[in-house]
Each structure stands twice: as C-alpha cells, then as structure tokens.
Write a protein that binds this DNA or RNA. Structure first.
Lengths: 351, 351
DNA sequence: TTGAAAGCGATACCAG
DNA sequence: CTGGTATCGCTTTCAA
C-alpha cells in the first residue's frame, strides 16, 4: 500500500524487520539504536550487523511521534539570497548544530501571509523554536495574528523568536533580539554632519517597514541635535533593491535638492545609489558622499569602500539560539549595539 | 511525560479533543481537516468552530506517519552565505512552493562528512528528494558512500539530486544537473587570448575540487587551441575565498611570471584578486585584466564591472525540482550551458 | 538484560 | 454521510 510498490516488492524496512532478522525483540533494537538502555554486547553486534546489512534508517516521523525526535529550529527568512540575514541564519545554524539541533530554513519571499502560514506549518512540525528574521511591515492585523501564533507555540512548548524586528505589543510569549536601528542611523548621520555635510538625502527603505522607520527616526534626531531643519524633500522611500535605489537617485538628482551626501537604507541600496551617481557623471566621494547600513561583505569590496553601519548579524543569530535553548529563560528582549565603520565613501566638506 | 507540563495542565490538543468537544468522531474531524471526504455542512462548521476555538493544528509527524504528509525537498548547501548557490536554492524553492512541496535548507559547512550525515538524516525525514549543491572533493570513499545513499534513497521512493557536480560513477539511481564548467572556462580563456593576452594567471580553486578541475581543463584546452604552451607556474590552487585569493595574487606578483591577466575561479575570488592588485599599486584593467566565474550580482557592482562566466544558477534549481517532481523521469543527466558576460575588467592588448 | 504491549496523533478502510 | 478501528514505526513502561 506504500506509495510505490512498483519494482521492489520489499516495502520500507522497519524496526520489526531488523528485530526478526536478528532474532530479538523490537524493543531491543530500539535500545541498541538509541543507546538509551543497556544491551548485551552479543545482541548489540547482532543487531548492528543486520542494520548495516539492510541499510536501515529509523523513520524520523515515527520517532518524533513517540516523543524522541531531535529538537528543531525553524528559520523563516525573507529571501535566501539576501546577504544580511544569511549571516543571521548562519549564526543560528552554528549554535544549533553544536547542540545537535536540526535547523531548517524556509523562505517567505517577504510575504507576511506566507510567513504566517509557515509559522503555522512549523508549529505542526513541532519545531522547538521558530525564528522570524528581518524587519516587517507594521500592520495591525499581522501583529494580532502573530501574537496568537506566539501563544499557541508557547503552549505547545515551543518558542517564537523575533530577530531584527521590534517586539510584539502586549504580553506576548516571544523572544526578541533587535539591533539598534535608530541609534545606528543617528550615529551615522552625526558622522556625516560632523564632516560638514548639511543636506543628506536619505533612502530609509519602504514606508511602514519597521527598520526603515527606526532608521529615519535616528536620522531626524541627529538633525535636531545639530540644530538643522528636517526637509521631507530629502526623504525618499522605496524597496531595499539596488534597482529602485538607482532610479530614486537619478530622480532626486533632477530635483533641486542640492544634497552632498546620500544615506542609503542598506548596503545593497548604497550600491544602487553609487551606480546611479556614476551614471550621472558624479564621482563618489568627490562630488557626493554615500553611506550604507548593514556592513555586509559587499561593502568592503566596493570602490570606494563603503562607510556603513555595522550590524552584528551573526551574533544576533547565535544569541537567538542561545536564548531559546537555555533552560532558564533569563531575557526575552535583547538589543544589540551597532557602530559606524569608516571606509572611503565619505568626503569631509570644508564648511 | 510531556516535555513541559509545567504551567498549563492541558497537554497538547489532539484530534480527539476536537472530536469530543464537537460531538463527532475523530474520523469526521480528520475528513473536515483534510477535506478528502464529503461531510455535512452542519458537522463541518461545528468542527471548524472548535478547531478555531482551541487553536488546533494537526501534528505533522503523525500525519506523515499515517502516510499523508507533504512532499519535502531537502537542499544541502555548503554555506548559506554563498551567493551562487543561494540562487540555486531559490530556484528550487520557487518550484517547490508552486507544487506545495515543503523545502528545507540544511547547511553542510563544506564538510563531506556532515553532508553524508545530513543526507542520512533527510532520508529519515522521508524527504522526497535530497539535493546536493555545488562542487565537491573528488574522493573515492565519498563516492562509494554517496552511491549507497543514492540507492537507499531510491528504494525508499526518494531521489538524490546532484547539482553543479559531476554524476556518480556506475549505475547509480541519481539525477545530475551540471553546468558546463570546462566549456565556460574554455570560452573565457579564449576570450582573453583573443584580446591579445598570452600569459594568464589562473586560480582555479582547491585542488581535487570538481569544479576547479573542470575549469582548469577548459583553460588548458584553450591554450592548446591557440597553440600556446601550458605553464604550470601560472596555476595557483586555493580555496574559494577572497582572502586567500588576495594572498595568492600578491605572492604571484613577487614571482617573475609576467602575466597580463588573471582568471579567477569564482567572482568572489576575483574580488580578492582585484583588491590584491590594487594594493600592489596596479590598476584593473589598465595594468592587469581580471575575469571571474559565476556572474553573481556582485560582479556587476564591482568597479570596473567584472567580465565573467555566467552560470544559470536559478535555472539549475528550477530544473532540479522539475526533474524530480515529474512523474515520468525523462532525463537523469542535464548539462546547462554557460556564457561569457563582457564588462569592463579586461583590456585588449596590442600584440 | 530482555520481551510484550500500550501508546504517540492522524488517516482510511470497512461497516452501518 | 458518519463512526469504529486497524495501522503507520518507534519509544518506553511494566513484567519476567
């Protein structure tokens, strides 16, 4: 009755086959395999021989069902080709495999709907932790539904982890690990201002996107601190893609905002900006300075090297797994620091 | 007992709880949930109400055990931060989710041992397909063991897929999707030669690594075709990392191989090369030309834009899933084409 | 030590 | 349509 009984008449080999062939009980085979219980050497070798001979592997589902499967952490990621969060995933993965946890990466495609569906799926899979990576749109409905998932994950002995996005409102059983978006943006903007720049075009990211909001806030605060006016004309929202950034810059150039620097919402956006500038015959940083956010490896490889805000992505991942795997749950909200990495893409301005 | 019975005394909610609360049999609940069988509207709504009320989700393991779980494709990837294979993974993922397959990414860390272990693990999980991504070391023992896994996956109704590496030797039940490494390298080398370059330093990658071997072969063939001698002194093996590439180039510069171009084994290696060159006060392409292999987005963003060999990574992934999910298995070995993408990193030489 | 048997949670066959 | 129930493959008491 198996799906395919086609060629081989031999159905899937089970623990019973092993037991029969080795002349022992299934219980004994189970004990040998999980080495949970003492078994005589004689039987042990007899069982192992048959296991190898028949190339037997226990069915993981049956195991989990019986309550013995491995712990699993599910990582829900926007896009697998995004460098920043790939690093978080790596951090999680490292800590997970060190603990013999299985880690699974699922791709959401940036769709909140699909993200919700996957959280649910992982709940069915009995994941010990479900990690949501990256910023998200600030939608009320979404918050509500996610809060419900958090609760049911919790009551199933599992845990929801928010990485790189603000905590859910209210008393929700979830762990949040953020990095300081606002402060990073504040420091970076201050850096530009201290170098003599006064008009900074900013591409914070999509409107209503949590990271974009926080970065814009930091930008505004820095202006205020320096006693400079906030000019909404210098703010251009748009997705985190080099293509859209490219377009935005070219468009901004046509306007009459005589900016001397561009603060890109991410490093990828910064590359788009730099290309647009170059295309317009402008040089970076001689004509226009450019800075980014993330500090992915790409930032170092650009020329000029990109001055950007370093985010400890891998550390975030590690911390995420440490927090959920620790028996006593010390913290459920951590904010990691960021800092500016100075390279060659900013020119000091004589004021 | 259950892992945590702590606060809530209510164990995990099961289908039986739903049945009891809704006053129906478990069979009926199952039917409502899987909508496999007709159920009266009355009962259906009664069940669904309880499901929502109790926030019930079926246990995926139990489901799979009963033979009803979703198909799963496991993607085994070297490093999640590697751009090239992230694109393959995306291709697979897209096709998978279009078919409502679940796709799981596992990270091997480039360790053949761990890769083998993960294949085994995925076999236990009952994955419908296990996709191995990227080149690998050409080890006899590894070949043998992988062939055994291929067979047992096959007899379990599953399938092993090799992506970007040569097929296993002998009559092994596996699907292979390669791209033409040798030909890509041949064409790229020919391109350099046709531009007047005569001494091309090549960094093919790690020795005994399948892709490196094939690329080096293409390089040699091109030289032969042009009637040029093969100089082993121009070949430098090393891992696919910008750091090691950087070191290798600096070292090669100290030697007396007066090369005019560098053929980097990957785009990432090319960035390392370019940095090394720049550090040595050399300009690309004015002093030395540089080309890569992969055509990841980075190649476009470098300045000068990197001339490189385009590999259809995403297409590979799509094809992989199409091949295994198609009922009739038409092909079990596909070789995709590659082509040169010309950008600005090569200078024509007056001969 | 070892074995027999009772679950784990859901599906699907066989009756009604 | 709806309800019992055997079954999936393994772990784990409980006895022997």
């Amino acid at each position: 009755m198996g799906r395919q009984k086609a060629a081989a008449d031999e159905a899937r080999i089970t623990i019973r086959d092993i037991a029969a062939r080795a002349g022992v009980s299934v219980a004994t085979v189970s004990r040998v395999l999980s080495s949970s219980h003492p078994v005589s050497d004689d039987l042990r070798t007899r069982v192992m021989d048959v296991v190898r001979e028949l190339d037997y592997v226990p069915n993981a589902h049956a195991r989990s069902l019986a309550g013995a499967g491995p712990k699993t952490v599910a990582i829900l990621i926007d896009s697998i080709t995004g460098a920043a969060f790939a690093h978080v995933a790596r951090g999680i993965e490292e800590e997970a495999s060190a603990r013999d946890w299985l880690s699974l990466v699922c791709v959401t495609g940036g769709d909140p709907e699909r993200e919700l569906a996957l959280v649910n799926l992982m709940r069915q899979q009995g994941a010990a932790a479900v990690v949501l990576l990256g910023g998200t749109y600030d939608l009320a409905d979404y918050q509500l539904r996610m809060a419900r998932f958090a609760k049911s994950l919790d009551s199933a002995g599992s845990r929801l982890v928010l990485c790189g996005r603000p905590p859910l409102q209210g008393d929700v059983p979830a762990t949040t690990i953020e990095y300081d978006n606002a402060n990073g943006a504040f420091t970076m903007t201050s850096h530009l201002l201290s170098m003599g720049h006064r008009r900074v075009l900013i591409l914070p990211g999509p409107e209503n996107f949590t990271t974009a909001q926080a970065r814009l806030e930091g930008y505004r605060n820095a202006l205020t601190t320096y006693g400079l006016p906030y000019d909404a004309g210098l703010v251009r929202h748009g997705r985190y893609e080099d293509g859209v950034a490219h377009r935005i810059v070219l468009d901004a150039l046509r306007g009459k905002n005589d900016f001397t620097a561009v603060f890109a919402g991410t490093d990828v956006v910064a590359t788009g900006v730099m290309e647009g500038l170059r295309e317009a015959g402008l040089s970076v940083p001689d004509d226009i300075s450019v800075v980014g956010f993330d500090d992915i490896p790409l930032a170092r490889h650009l020329s000029p090297g990109l001055t950007t805000v370093h985010v400890p992505y891998e550390e975030m991942g590690r911390m995420a797994l440490r927090l959920v795997s620790s028996p006593r749950r010390d913290k459920d909200h951590v904010v990691l620091g960021t800092h500016v990495v100075v390279r060659q893409s900013v020119r000091p301005l004589a004021v």
